[in-house]
Design a protein around this nucleic acid. Sequence first.
RNA 1: GGCGCCUUCGUCAAGUGGUUAAGACACCGCCCUCUCACGGCGGGUUCAUGGGUUCGAAUCCCAUAGGCGUCACCA
Length: 482
Amino acid sequence: MKVRTRFAPSPTGYMHIGNLRTALYAYLFAKKNNGDFILRIEDTDRARFVPDAVDFIKRTLKAANIVADEGPGIGGAYGPYVQSERMEIYKKYAMELIEKGAAYPCFCDEKKESAANEDKKFGGYNRACRDIPPEEAKARMETEPFVVRQKMPLTGETSYFDVLHGAISFNNEELEDQILLKRDGMPTYNFANVIDDHLMEVTHIIRGAEFITSTPKHVLLYEALGWETPAFIHLAPVMGKADDGSVSKLSKRHGATSFEDLVNMGYLPEAIVNYVALLGWNPKNSTQEIFSMDELIAEFSLEGLSKSNSVFDYEKLNWMNGEYLKAMTDAEFSKLAKPFAGDLGELEDNWAKISALLKTRISKFNEIPEEIAFLREMPPFDANLYVNKRNKVTPDFAREILPGAIELLEAIPDKDWENDKLYERLNAFITEKGYKKGAALWPVRISVSGKAATPGGATEILSILGKAKSLERMKNSLENLG
RNA sequence: GGCGCCUUCGUCAAGUGGUUAAGACACCGCCCUCUCACGGCGGGUUCAUGGGUUCGAAUCCCAUAGGCGUCACCA
């Protein structure tokens, strides 16, 4: 039998990182087994419907390089793939269950139903509806508003096998007569889900652990319909860590939690996918951590899934993103990083040089503006910045060396104002004077950057700034030294 | 609260009765070095607790604790 998995989000206009991971695993499993991956939109809650959310989901999956074989706008033999377009189908099966006596319509008014009632089993209203004869039910359904409920067993237990967790069972007493069709005619998640997964021939349901406790309801539905149950795989949730060290389900208070947020911060989609893949899954027999999508597909297996919660760790994501950045060519990096650089003004022409220096120094693109701020504008700084213990540099030494360095640089023609030549000249000067290279170049770099740490060394910064600006900065710095 | 799932370094995790309990991030040290970073080398820190079973337990069983989830005409 061909493996078929699905990702079935509700259209909220937001792709939580946990959902992305669920989609990824479903996709990887399908592809690993030469199966199909289906996108299905579960938009049965009219109140929460967000316009354009379907497009958003599709764009997100595309950016993440998760490709659906079937879905809205993609096509496939099992459509439509949007639940609101499948109303007739759900209605048909609901009627079938009513005929069978496995479900029944409830005509009680909404208020009464929602009122608290000790008889929870029947949703807080009278259980008499349960025994309504099918004929009478059908007649009243023509004129009165109703919901359809499934008759749940009063005793015994329902169990199922979860590929990850093994056998799980629940007492049927815990289950109330679940609603199949809502008052507005829409199916509930529990109902539509079962119908669609069966009709779309889904073989493996990969979804979040929050569905563990509602799965017995689904199982009872499969049984009532006389259908075989698919395999269930319930994934442990992704947690976030708060500043106080406490851990809870990943949410806004932990910072960015959607794929889009992360991309906007300057993380690469490939790196996010790679990191998320490893949050709750690991390749057996290997310590590899950097994976392309194809490698993930090749390595993926259900055995590598973790049963326990995992905590989203920005530090590790940073590292991984940095690995992807470093693996890029300078040209690729330069191009992708550019939109994060802001207005470069006169530095525009030197972006290639600047970005090359940035590549090994940032973990994500949004660090760029701060990294290069000193190039736009000389930051004010204190003479103590000239102090460098390791090279035994002091402000006095800066006073000593700077005038000579300025004089030397001033003599260099514009055409020779580039890194290699600058380095060569400065080096010759340093050797001649008997200075140590590290010690001599430190004050130069400070005088021109005003920062203890910079992307690029002294000569690289000089070359980016250009002769005029460099000398202006050096002279000012020397003057400020007094 | 009932029910359910889970529990190896701070974090991601390997491990399925006998291991010096992998590896990675982060952290620390050294080397490299025109600062920082990159790169190289090295280091510390872990089996939630208490009982069993066993010659032997991170691995099996029970209990406790803690975390998470779920109890909707939301998914």
